[in-house]
Design a protein around this nucleic acid. Structure first.
Lengths: 213, 213
DNA sequence: TGTACATCAGTGAACGCGCGTTCACTGATGTAC
DNA sequence: TGTACATCAGTGAACGCGCGTTCACTGATGTAC
């Protein structure tokens, strides 16, 4: 049967990735174990190496996939409403639905792991929906010459964007990531839980700061 | 010699904590190993248990110490200038000087570790300097009834504070933590590195949003 | 001051467990003639 | 269509290493009389 080998490879690869996601949810990315994955999938530990040559290669695939999943969720939300709030809400929703994937890409770096260059475009795809809606903003606080010098080359590559807008988008996205990260880690327990209202207020503040109101 | 036993206990405890800090800098908090610490300090592995009954107890002590170190740095900065920017800058400076301590308290939660209640006041001490300077703000975006209901009890305990101000401070602090966390993780490489100008612009934006200009 | 006793820091062996990666191999699937 | 050969998924054993925690113990330090 032509293609059965190919098909089975696809299935096993998917099973390994699924097992790996379950594993990091329980033991963190640093505790990801090739042997535990093999056990889960029903393979002998060495067989996993037919699919991923090292543990780090498996991590890289997972990271790129997670960036892609998030970017997809954001793009879908942006399509429904050309608004800063739409991808903003989608970011938090996605993070809460797969918290370990969020931590994998935005959490503490994994000791001993160096992200290869392939992860860069995947990471950039997350920023794109936010830049599309606010890259052209000109908020006063970000209009310094230092920032212009740093971000002009990046803004030149984005139609309709300018350095101050890119700078503002980057910091506001960092703000959202910070909020969600602290919320997932339980820092808001006893302070503002659930964080829904606070997050909405933050989005409102951002819309104002970016001059999108 | 009276007190020599006490003194040696203090020294060994400090040596263990110092070795533990070095260890998490290299292998992350999840990889903290009692045996590695023992080796570093020059003890047999079981001896460490005379000082910390479990690995989790050691982690708790480290976490509380790190909150304390950060809170101290922020309070010192706030004393020199009663300004939002002073503790803001001190937060980033501290994080960059001891990145693993920052990740220990604000990074991805350590799998299998549950922070005990003793860590709560230590964590709160970090927020205090920011609340002191901006807890009385009344930014429009945070003046919803939902937020008021959630944060009124907390604001009541803080002289001069109001719910909208507390809400704004919490989200703006989350924004700073988010920025610094992403910067430490290398997410700004090739985008805005060094992040000095961007961080200053963000502080400027915050001062404006909080109505402290 | 001197002696008997209690405290406790540190030892070393052991328990039962985990890991990433390599290697020579078997046997099924796929391909070329 | 049938046969010879190549590919490659999966095996099982091995390498050399790590871990947290418990326990009975030795011997030095500190205390009470």
């Amino acid at each position: 049967m032509v293609g059965s080998r190919e098909e089975s490879r696809r299935r096993t690869t998917a099973a390994i990735l699924a097992a790996a996601r379950t594993a990091i949810a329980q033991h963190g990315a640093a505790g990801l174990s090739m042997r535990a994955i093999a056990r889960d999938v029903g393979l002998v530990s060495s067989a996993v190496y037919r699919y991923f040559p090292t543990r780090d290669a498996l991590l890289t695939t997972m990271i790129i996939e997670s960036y892609g999943n998030l970017a997809g969720a954001l793009a879908a939300a942006s399509e429904e409403a050309a608004d800063w709030r739409a991808p903003g809400r989608a970011l938090r929703d996605w993070a809460r639905s797969v918290p370990h994937e969020f931590q994998l890409i935005y959490g503490t770096p994994i000791p001993g792991y160096r992200a290869p260059p392939e992860t860069i475009p995947a990471a950039a795809a997350v920023v794109a929906p936010f830049l599309a809606v606010a890259g052209g903003a000109t908020p006063a606080a970000f209009s310094g010459s230092m920032i212009e010098a740093q971000l002009q080359p990046l803004a030149d590559d984005l139609p309709g964007a300018n350095p101050a807008g890119v700078a503002a988008v980057v910091t506001e996205l960092a703000a959202l990531v910070g909020f969600v990260g602290l919320e997932l880690a339980g820092h808001f327990v006893g302070v503002a839980e659930p964080g829904d209202a606070l997050y909405e207020a933050m989005l409102e503040r951002q819309v104002g700061s970016l001059g999108l109101a």
